Amino acid sequence: MENAKILVVDDDAKLRDLLSRFLVQQGMSAETLPDARDIERKLARNRPDLVVLDVMMPGEDGLAVVRRLRAQGETIPIIMLTARGEDIDRILGLEMGADDYLAKPFNPRELTARIQAVLRRHHATPALNARHDAEDAVSFGGFTLHLGRRELVGERGVVSLTSAEYAVLSVLATHPRRPLTREQLMEMALGKGGGDSLDRSIDVHVSRLRKALDNGDGKTRHIQTVWGYGYVFVPDGLPRE
């Protein structure tokens, strides 16, 4: 998305300079930080549209930063940069609340594509490119998913979701009782075609959604696993036959 403001937080000065110049060339604006000490001030004073955050940094690492921001209710989109392509780095980042991840080394064009995809999810309903009126909503249990407002409301108020979590929930909720494979969810919710069979990011997003929808007893009701296939949304929360 043109004119998007991106904050790059990485202790590698050369990488910060490279990404800053490249993002500007792509029609975005970019600011950088060498570590996370001033990230809250940046978010408050000159709020970016998205944060690119390195995992391995001196002081507070990227995982701790994401955990802290999400605990504060901060929903700004975050893409994490991992020094290694190991699954554990990716999974931990998503579990903490990151919207996406990218393993170093990477092509700057790939980062641009990830940024654009995350921003599209953050600003527009992804499910089959549907357009929803302000009053469109799906109610289930003690929750209401306002599709037009891109907001999940529970008995305790608005539930904080990342753009990826909202995207996955909106796809599931608008296809009730229809089992969807992981690959279908990757395509419909996250815009990632030809899903990698080893990519378990959908599982992490579903796990976080289940925690958000937990009524206190730890039981899974509305998003149920279809073993060997994927997931299905059950509005009444009753076991599927």
Rank of each mutant, 00 (worst) to 15 (best):
L92Q: 08
D100Q: 06
Q184F: 06
R200H: 15
G141T: 09
E151K: 14
L169F: 10
A164K: 01
R109F: 10
A127Q: 12
A189C: 12
L69K: 02
V206K: 09
D199C: 13
T181E: 13
D38R: 13
T112I: 10
D99G: 11
L33G: 01
R67I: 02
D35H: 08
I91H: 03
E183S: 15
Y101S: 01
K219D: 12
D217V: 11
Q184D: 14
N215V: 12
R68Q: 13
A71C: 00
L94F: 11
V153A: 10
P105L: 09
H205P: 06
A117K: 14
H132E: 07
R121Q: 11
D12E: 14
T82Q: 02
A30I: 06
R177N: 15
L172N: 11
R208D: 04
P77C: 06
A71G: 12
F143P: 00
R90T: 03
H123F: 14
I79R: 04
R221W: 09
R149L: 07
L23E: 00
A167L: 12
G216D: 05
L238R: 15
D217W: 11
H132A: 04
V206Q: 10
E40N: 12
I39R: 03
L63G: 10
W227G: 04
V226I: 15
L152A: 06
H146D: 02
R121V: 01
S207Q: 15
I202W: 07
R131P: 06
V206A: 10
R109K: 08
A117P: 00
L198Y: 13
D11P: 02
L198D: 14
L7H: 07
S139Q: 13
I88Q: 14
E135M: 04
R150V: 07
T75G: 04
T225C: 10
E31S: 12
H146E: 11
L33N: 05
D217N: 14
G85V: 11
L81K: 04
V118G: 01
A137M: 08
M186P: 00
W227P: 05
F140T: 01
E241D: 09
D99H: 03
L145K: 02
V226Q: 15
L213R: 07
D236V: 01
L43E: 03
T82K: 05
R131I: 08
A167G: 10
K219A: 13
R177H: 10
G85S: 05
P108Q: 01
A117S: 15
K211Q: 10
D89Q: 02
R84V: 05
Q184N: 12
P235E: 09
D136P: 12
E155R: 15
R90N: 00
T181F: 09
T112R: 08
V206R: 05
M80N: 04
V8R: 04
L198T: 13
L50R: 03
T220R: 14
L119W: 10
V168H: 07
M57W: 05
V65E: 03
Y101D: 03
P105E: 02
S163H: 01
D17Q: 14
I78K: 00
T174Q: 13
A117G: 07
P48W: 09
M186C: 05
D99R: 05
D38W: 13
G237F: 11
L209I: 11
N46Q: 12
